[in-house]
Design a protein around this nucleic acid. Structure first.
Length: 859
RNA sequence: GCCGAAGUGGCGGAAUGGCAGACGCGAUGGUCUCAAACACCAUUGAGUGCAAGCUCGUGUGGGUUCGAAUCCCACCUUCGGCACCA
């Protein structure tokens, strides 16, 4: 039908302008900047607010493709929400304290601040090339005094409120270099120092803690939050709330010590108290020394030393053979009076519960393994109700519902839960125990023995013993880091050797004082930075209460699942603590959370500079343009999935954008080969023009429906596939009578609007050309309203129904919508293929899923 | 080890109880070209058949269901976290 038109217009058609992102992209970036399009008016209340936050970056130096894959889809959300009428705030900043800057300082002698700021400067430029809608006016850098002074301020508030305290805690220590090591600086199963290879030991230091356990129960709740279930599960398990009882055993007198000391144990199963056949203390437990018999002394000391060298993961590993040593002393069971031996073993941790357990080998897998290894008695005290067979000795019994106590004195025969409370009550009445709850969650150790961090604002008075540890006054903040540092080759905290930093007057007595040299770990910075984004230059307060109340909680937070537990729990802790300090109103920081996946190096490992597997986006941006790189990152995998990096396939995405370019700017052209190969392929060509035009518009609206829904679920890879299908449809209609029609124009308009959040530069360019062509003034495509799809347009009047026989596909029937089940069955049964397949068989049942399928069950 | 997640064509992935492999890459053949590149068109899970078709097929083994990639149980492999990398 259109072949004559094609051949007659083709020669007169001017050569098509090629898609050239290298001229388009910088031009629009400059224009958006000039217009301040991405600056958010935080006081604008004419539109609903939308606080979009993406985890800020550590300024390692180069922005790699992984940074892009975090930020690009978040930027698409930002643009999509703007088009949906929201006032979006999308800030950017840098998590600028931390170990790598200090390592660089050790290596090259350059000040960590110099190294960090140079990296930030470089990354700013790379971030800008992305064409993202970051509000650079709100940028913050945590390593500047304007930011970190407020860490100090919060520290003082927490101290006042009892949420910060000082206690002993172990660190990894290199005995040769005399420095504290970070976990990543301890290498291999041997746990050796990364620099000198010396085996690392644990050393106890006085350190600062934030009392996260004060909110343990509240942290288990997620009121009104839209968080992924796996993340909540991980957090709940991390908090690890256990209900049970504390039971007091008494040390039995013997020839070495008089006895009478109390050993408190925590158990989740007080109902098994009669089955306790030994006690186990953590090797670090305070009573170990006094309870050790002389003949056991050497073995006990050796064991305690060995366990100091092990990592916690090692100690808790359940498949490794159990180790332990008997102390020689015994304890008395408070309820049965039974005398049982006391052991130490490294699978019991000092920091959990009371640092001591009663071992019930018959009913706990770890105790069972331990008892077997050391031939300790195993006594069964729980049995399934009504089970008559003799008690089996020497066997671990898994818990089942419907259990009763056996061999448990007066409690025998009680159902297990009842037995637990009865035993707990009895203990409580005698002052030998009580119901108790314990948590796996520990208080947050915020001290770091490093120079490149927030100095902790306290002074140790050396003049007057009664002063002790003295917090600075608010008016004495900030405690500034020195302008120059002396980093020693073996590492260690440079602040400890900086006399100008160390020497200060005691704030209480004015005498000689020494500053705290520990700094706050960087998770402290990341626990409140989103409030600071709202007023990054504010001098008088950490945050602007009015703006925080207006904008928080954050509507959408995006970042890696590697932060599932620590960062996200610390942030929630801060929200609760600040609310209790009266500084903010909301108790939760992030309303909706999305954990995107990571792009790994080509080796399948996490991308990092030290591994040398970092992929630089700059070259790809130069070759294909930012829009193509953006689109490719969103197309190559579901956002939440991890995947190793490979640029294979980026050409396909670039071709897709070129096709969009072609259908918009050259609707009537044809490819040189098309006339030769028979014109337009596909069904549309056979349709009469009005039907083909309607079909195109139907496709566009169906795409709009799907794409709108897919944006809401952040399913960018599928969304882009839908846009490709629409573009393929436009490509097929190009050069036919459909091209240029009203339906065509509308389909093009929808395509550009749907594409705008993903490929913002190209969409803007093509949008502006269409406006110019129509003689209209310029408006940004990004300021347009998101279009609505027309339900009437996309309803189908027929449906193609798959027909299965015994679940196997045998035929397809095209039927009008809304037929009765009887009519459908009639139509299906009449089909030749169906009849052939049913020959000689008995129809047992017909399953009809409306508009989905028919399944005939035969025998 | 413990907690969490994921295993689908040659590759990235789609389909989350109802037509497995959308979309893209790669590959093969073709059109255009002096030629190549680009672009465009066609084919492309495996096996089998002249063909209509048939059989097999979603990490492995079992189960539930008229029907399972999808739900349940066990196992294997990979990834993230395990409290001083950020």
């Amino acid at each position: 039908m259109t072949s004559e038109a094609n051949t007659s217009t083709a020669p007169a058609h001017p050569p098509r302008e090629r898609y050239d992102p290298s001229t388009i992209e910088p031009r629009w970036q400059a224009r958006w900047d000039e217009l301040g399009m991405h600056r958010t008016d935080l006081r604008d209340d004419t539109r609903p607010k939308y606080y979009l936050l993406t985890m800020y970056d550590y300024p390692s130096g180069d922005l790699h493709i992984g940074h892009w894959s975090i930020k690009v889809p978040t930027d698409a959300i930002s643009r999509y929400r703007r088009m949906n009428g929201f006032n979006v705030f999308f800030p950017v900043g840098f998590d600028a304290f931390g170990l790598p800057a200090e390592n660089a300082a050790i290596k090259s002698g350059v000040h960590p601040a110099t190294w960090t700021m140079a990296n930030i400067e470089r990354m700013r430029g790379q971030l800008r090339s992305m064409g993202a809608t970051f509000d650079w006016e709100a940028e913050l850098v945590t390593a500047t005094p304007e930011f970190y002074r407020w860490n100090q301020w919060f520290f003082l508030k927490f101290l006042e409120k009892g949420l910060a305290y000082r206690a002993m805690a172990p660190v990894d220590w290199c005995p040769k270099d005399q420095v504290v090591l970070a976990r990543e600086q301890v290498e291999g199963a041997e746990r050796r120092c990364w620099r000198c290879g010396t085996p690392v030991v644990k050393r106890d230091l006085e350190q600062w803690f934030y009392r996260t356990t004060a909110y343990a129960d509240e942290l288990l709740e997620y009121p009104g939050l839209d968080w992924p279930e796996p993340i909540r599960t991980m957090q709940r398990n991390w908090i690890g709330r256990s209900e049970g009882a504390e039971v007091e055993f008494t040390v039995a007198p013997d020839e070495v010590q008089p006895g009478g000391d109390n050993i408190r144990v925590f158990t989740t199963r007080p109902d098994t108290l009669f089955g306790a056949t030994f006690l186990v203390l953590a090797p670090e437990h305070a009573l170990v020394d006094s309870l050790t018999h002389p003949e056991q002394r050497d073995e006990v000391d050796a064991y305690r030393l060995a366990s100091r060298r092990k990592s916690e993961i090692d100690r808790l590993s359940t498949d490794r053979e159990k180790t332990g040593v008997a102390l020689g002393s015994d304890a008395l069971n408070p309820i049965s009076g039974e005398r049982i031996p006391i052991w130490i073993a490294d699978y019991v941790l000092l920091g959990y519960g009371t640092g001591a357990i009663m071992a019930v080998p018959a009913h706990d897998a770890r105790d069972f393994a331990f008892a077997q290894r050391f031939e300790l008695p195993i006594r069964r005290v729980i049995q399934a109700h009504g089970q008559e067979e003799a008690l089996v000795e020497d066997a671990f019994v898994a818990h089942t519902p419907d259990e009763v106590l056996v061999d448990s004195g007066p409690f025998t025969g009680m159902p297990a839960p009842e037995g637990a409370s009865a035993i707990t009550e009895t203990l409580e009445s005698r002052g030998q125990g009580k119901g108790s709850v314990t948590y796996r969650l520990r208080d947050w150790l915020v001290s770091r023995q490093r120079a490149w961090g927030t100095p902790i604002p306290v002074v140790y008075c050396e003049a007057e013993p009664s002063c002790g540890v003295v917090p600075l006054g608010e008016d004495q903040l900030p405690v500034l880091l020195p302008e120059d540092f002396e980093f020693r080759p073996q590492g260690g905290n440079a602040l400890e050797f900086d006399e100008r930093f160390l020497r200060t007057a005691c704030p209480r007595c004015g005498g000689v004082g020494r500053r705290e040299t520990d700094t706050l770990e960087t998770f402290v910075d990341s626990s409140w930075y989103w409030w600071r984004y709202l007023s990054p230059k504010e001098d008088d307060a950490p945050l602007d209460r009015d703006l925080v109340d207006r904008w928080c909680p954050v509507d959408q937070y995006t970042g890696g699942a590697e932060h599932a537990v620590m960062h996200l729990l610390y942030s929630r802790f801060f929200a609760k603590a600040l609310a209790d300090l009266g500084l903010i109103s909301e108790r939760e920081p992030f309303r909706r959370l999305f954990n995107q996946g990571q792009i790994l190096g080509q080796d399948g490992e996490r991308m990092s500079k030290s591994r040398g597997n970092v992929q630089d986006p700059d070259e790809l941006v130069q070759r294909f343009g930012a829009d193509t790189v953006r689109l490719f990152l969103m197309f190559m995998k579901p956002w939440e999935a991890d995947a190793p990096w490979s640029a294979t396939g980026i050409g396909g995405v670039h071709r897709f954008l070129s096709r969009v370019w072609t259908v918009v700017l050259d609707p009537h052209g044809t490819e040189a080969s098309e006339s030769e190969s028979g014109g337009q392929a596909g069904g549309d060509a056979e349709m009469d023009p009005p039907a083909a035009r309607r079909e195109l518009l139907r496709l566009a609206h169906r795409t709009l429906r799907d794409v709108s829904e897919l944006y809401e679920g952040y399913r960018f890879n599928v969304l882009i596939a839908k846009l490709m299908e629409l573009t393929n449809g436009l490509m097929r209609a190009r050069g036919t009578a459909v091209a240029g029609s009203g339906e065509w124009q509308e389909s093009i308009r929808l395509t550009l609007l749907m594409l705008a959040p993903l490929a913002p530069h190209m969409a803007e360019e093509l949008w502006s050309r269409r406006l110019a062509e129509a003689g209209e003034g310029w408006r940004s495509v990004h300021a347009e309203r998101w279009p609505a799809w027309d339900p009437a347009l996309i309803t189908e009047d027929t449906v193609e129904l798959p027909v299965q026989i015994n679940g196997k596909l045998r035929d397809r029937v095209s039927l009008p919508l809304g037929l009765s089940q009887a009519d459908i069955e009639g139509a299906v049964m009449g089909r030749e293929k169906v009849r052939a397949n049913l020959a000689g068989k008995e129809v047992v049942r017909v399953i009809h899923v409306p508009d989905r399928l028919v399944n005939i069950v035969v025998r």
